[in-house]
Nucleic acid binder design. Structure first.
Length: 417
RNA sequence: GGAGGGUUGGCCGAGCGGACGAAGGCAACGGUCUUGAAAACCGUCGUGCGGGUUUCCCCGUACCGUGGGUUCGAAUCCCACACCCUCCGCCA
């Protein structure tokens, strides 16, 4: 949620910021009106309660003879408070309903535009060349008994896969590689639950707006499957007042995504799937440290992918392509020889105080508390990292060269041999 | 799945329907004492919202797991739900 105070103290600023997200001035004005109406009633209710409280406390001090008349008088105040409270509840839910759907205010530095308008900040490494026919990850991995797409479809449906034999060992090696780098940078490893309650999804901004993207259990339990451990890592400090920041985590968990609305898109292999494993970075920081922490997370991601000796570019994501919680986002897109294209392998967002307000996670300061700032970033999304890795380092005989940084984890300099 | 016991401030813990935002203890912070430290003693010591002075604070209101209810008045009574603990059953 955005700071509601901004609606009265800097309405023009909010209007301008949300205009970059495609919001009209009248939408924002309507929101400001709901906020003002709510605030007005809060004052009235407080005053009515003060009168009622005084009256009932006087009864407590009064003698038995005086009480009946005083109670009769106080009964009228009771009704007055009840009426105002009913009006307040209505105004509050009207405002809240609108408020929770407002996306975060974009960072002034974030580029305008929509998907495809990202600004390439830098390109690292050289595009790999091959003097033999290039195979994509499905061919390479299935030939080596590392991947079984067909079994995934048979047992679970489209966009599910089995990792087998050397595929499993490669994944576990990569996970440990990424967790070690994250740990070196002060991120505590976490294996979180993947089923969460509604509040955690709401707090991280996935609800109410992304309902159609989430798997959910039936009404017996009514839990949501997390699409990223960002949800559970953020939830770790739900409702807390933190004394110390930064606090940093690296979550390792399966991720579940319905991929609604992507029919026919990226259908081959394990590029876009319903379930995959991911190592996710998450930071709680002081407001003024948000931008530098964002750079820090990006640097960790680059260390991970640089160590894998991949060709990649860093993209400053345009506002039209930001999630609702993000003020700014950087993606790393790795070159995938099988597709002859740069494709997204990581994404790091600065969500400023947006999630913290929803989660009610604050930082204790000298002058009271302030919402903390939260940031997240992909250390390693396993399927996509594996795709880029095996396609980039494939050799004529179908084996894959293992980059030096990964060799201690794999225990060999050749894979899928 | 069955039976019982719990949920109070950073932590422990008391709390009679009326003067309770809540005893007491611990921790923390400031001070006195001390060469220094400890001990002792004194003081401070929750958060949200609104308003006022405008940053030293002051006023109002709300919050004792969550949501409802009863009442002039609820931490205290009633109902529902969530979570935790113990025992039994089942189980990786």
């Amino acid at each position: 949620m955005i700071d509601p105070r901004l609606l009265r103290e800097d309405l023009d600023g909010v209007t301008a910021a949300l205009a970059r997200r495609g919001w009209s001035a009248s939408d924002v004005a309507e929101l400001a009106d709901l906020e003002a109406a709510h605030r007005d009633l809060v004052g009235k209710v407080d005053q009515a309660r003060a009168r009622q409280k005084e009256a009932s406390q006087a009864i407590g001090r009064a003698s038995a003879e005086d009480r009946p008349a005083m109670i009769a008088a106080a009964s009228e105040l009771k009704q007055e408070v009840a009426d105002l409270e009913a009006a307040l509840a209505e105004a509050e839910s009207a405002f809240t309903e609108a408020h929770v759907r407002v996306p975060n205010l974009p960072d002034p530095a974030a580029p305008d535009g929509n998907e495809g308008d990202g600004v390439v900040l830098r390109t690292v490494g050289d595009r790999p060349t091959f003097d033999f026919p290039v195979r994509d990850h499905v061919d390479l991995l299935e030939a080596a008994g590392a991947l079984d797409m067909e079994a995934g479809a048979k047992v679970s449906g489209a966009r599910f896969f089995y990792l087998t034999g050397p595929g499993v060992m490669l994944e576990l090696a990569l996970v440990r590689y990424a967790l070690d780098i994250a740990a070196r940078h002060g991120h505590t490893a976490v294996m979180p639950p993947v089923l969460v309650r509604r509040e955690a999804m709401f707090g991280t901004g996935f609800l109410p707006t992304d309902e159609q993207q989430l798997f959910r259990t039936d009404e017996r339990d009514d839990l949501y499957l997390t699409g990223t451990s960002e949800v559970t890592l953020a939830g770790l400090h739900m409702g807390d007042i933190m004394d110390e920041v930064p606090v940093r985590y690296a979550g390792y968990s399966p991720c579940f995504r319905r991929e609604a609305g992507t029919y026919g898109k990226d259908t081959r292999g394990m590029f876009r799937v319903h379930q995959f494993d991911k190592v996710e970075l998450f930071s709680f920081v002081a407001p003024e440290d948000g931008p530098s922490e964002h750079e820090r997370l990006l640097a960790i991601e680059e260390e991970v992918f640089g160590g894998l000796e991949l060709h990649y570019q860093v993209v400053d994501i345009p506002i039209g392509d930001l999630g609702g919680s993000a003020a700014r986002k950087f993606d790393i897109e790795a070159w995938m020889p099988g597709q002859e294209a740069f494709r997204e392998v990581t994404s790091t967002s600065n969500t400023t105080d947006y999630q913290a307000r929803r989660l009610n996670t604050r930082l204790r300061g000298e002058h009271g508390t302030t919402p903390v700032h939260t940031l997240n970033g992909t250390a390693l999304a396993l399927p996509r990292a594996i795709i880029a890795l095996v396609e980039t380092h494939q050799q004529a005989d179908g084996t894959v060269r293992v980059p030096a940084a990964l060799q201690p984890y794999v225990g060999s300099d050749i894979l899928l041999g």
